[in-house]
Structures are given as structure tokens and as C-alpha cells.
Design a protein around this nucleic acid. Sequence first.
DNA 1: GGTAGACCTGGACGC
DNA 2: GCGTCCAGGTCTACC
Length: 292
Amino acid sequence: MKFILPARKPFNFTSVVNSHGWRQLAPFSYDEDANILCYIVQLSNGRVIELKIRDALDGINVETDKLDRAEQKEVKDKVTWMFGLDMDFARFYAVSGGEPKLRRAKQRSLGRVLRSPTVFEDVIKTILTTNTLWAATKNMTRKLVDRFGASSHGDTEKRAFPTPASIAASSPEVLKETIRVGYRAPAIHQLAVRVASGQLDLESLKTSTLGTLELRKELLTINGVGPYAAANLLMILGRHDFIPIDSYALKMVSHEWYKGEPITAREVEKRFKKWGEFKGLAFWFWDWAYNQ
DNA sequence: GGTAGACCTGGACGC
DNA sequence: GCGTCCAGGTCTACC
């Protein structure tokens, strides 16, 4: 079956898909030529289905198996969250319009970042991006999905992202030895246990009324989540007051303003301070002179 | 509050 | 094919 989900204008499907590297991480896959984003999702009733998501007039087109009414609503809710279809960036475009390095933001409807359906998945993936190379992040995520993800009926190749319970039922040793997540194993296992047991409700963060500072404090209580990971997750949650400062950020800012000399996070903060609550967006979508 | 060092994996490189 | 080096954030101990 197929259905259309409307998006708040302006909206650009390709800009969301390419907003960061998530489309390369299982269970996402992306057909660049056809511009189709695929995602394997496990519904709350346990059913695993593949979603094929395409650009559509005024929104997105979702193609999947036949669904009953409840399943359809669940898919619509999940995809709406993943693409931030109801998000509004008018204020960001208004304040960034005079900055040449951000002029493309409005032109390309930038602002939304691609999300996973659950905050749990995005926290795990963010931890897997820390202190490692992108190729290793892709490997670890692939192995996690292959080992613990539920498969689509009749197709064991198509697996959803693991539930907290499925990871919690494993052990840090298995995560370390089989998934090769290294020292991250205790943090990932502990997070899965806390979420699976109901001790930690990560999904409530999607609609949290906490101020960004408080929300950041909450994220920093998660083992494996430091300043970079917290800022990245805040961006995903639609809070843009912090910059995810990693080695890439230091390199970009250094070449933009400091002739490639070594700099610290302080210089990055200084350069983007003026953007206030839009600091993260300004950094994320800055048109960098240095492009490597 | 700032800093140094350990934690791990896997790719690049030299032999 | 093997060994070594290095990149990459978080956490802890220490000053």
C-alpha cells in the first residue's frame, strides 16, 4: 500500500535524507539514483515491515505492505517524527537570511535532521559514532542489527533495529566480542537495561517541556554520552542551542577562521555564539570554505 | 575548571 | 601476512 504524508512548507526531502550520515546506518538504506530511502521498522505488535520513502508533492510518499488501521497510524506517527514533517524553521531563516554562509538554508529548506523512529535508537547510534571512524560506526550498527534485530517474515536479510529488551537480554561481553563495540559495551548494555525495565523513558524526551539546559543534563546522565553526543542528540530532538563539537568541527572552524591552526572548543563556541538558540543549526548548515 | 591518560577498533602504512 | 601507528569522544583521577 501507499500513502502520502504532508509536510509543513518549506520542505525538501533530499535535504532531510542528506542532513547527516544516518541514512548510511542500518536499518536505513538509500538508493541515491532513485532517491528512495528504505527503513526496516518493527511495529509495537512485533510485525517487521520495510518502508520505502520517496519525495512527493508537498510531502513524502510511503510505500509498504498492507497495514491495518492501527498499524497505519503507527507508521504515520513514526515517519512524521523521522522527517520532522511538522517542524517550522521560519525564525531560523529570518535571522540567518543576512548571513551569506547561511543563505542556502532557506533556499534548500535546511533545518530538519533525519531521525530514527525512537530516541533509544538515536542514542545508541550516537554512542557508536563516538571515538571511532565512520566506517567502524557503520560496521558496529550493522552487526547490532543483524545480531539482535527482529526480521521481516520470510526474509531474514531485512532486520529492524533491536529493541531495548533484545539488547538487555544479551551481555556486555557479547556486545564487545561479537558486535565489536569495544569499551562502549557496558554503556550500551546498561542503557538497554534501563530502558527495557522502564527505569528510563527516553521516548518522553521527544515531547519534553524541560528547558534545553535541563534536557542536556538529563542526556549527560547516560553513560557514554558526553558533551558532543548530548549536543548531537539535542539537535535530533529539535533543540539547537548547542554545537556538537568533534574533531570535524574543530577542523572546519580552524580552516574557516584560524588558517588551519590547532584550536579548542572555546573558539568554536566563540564563532557561533551570536546565533544563540540557533547555534546548532548555524553550525550544522554553515557553508564551510574547507570541504574535506 | 582544566588537563592527562586510558579505553578500543579497524584502517593505513611499512617491512 | 604481520606488526605498528593513529584517529576518534568519554570518563576518571589529579592538580
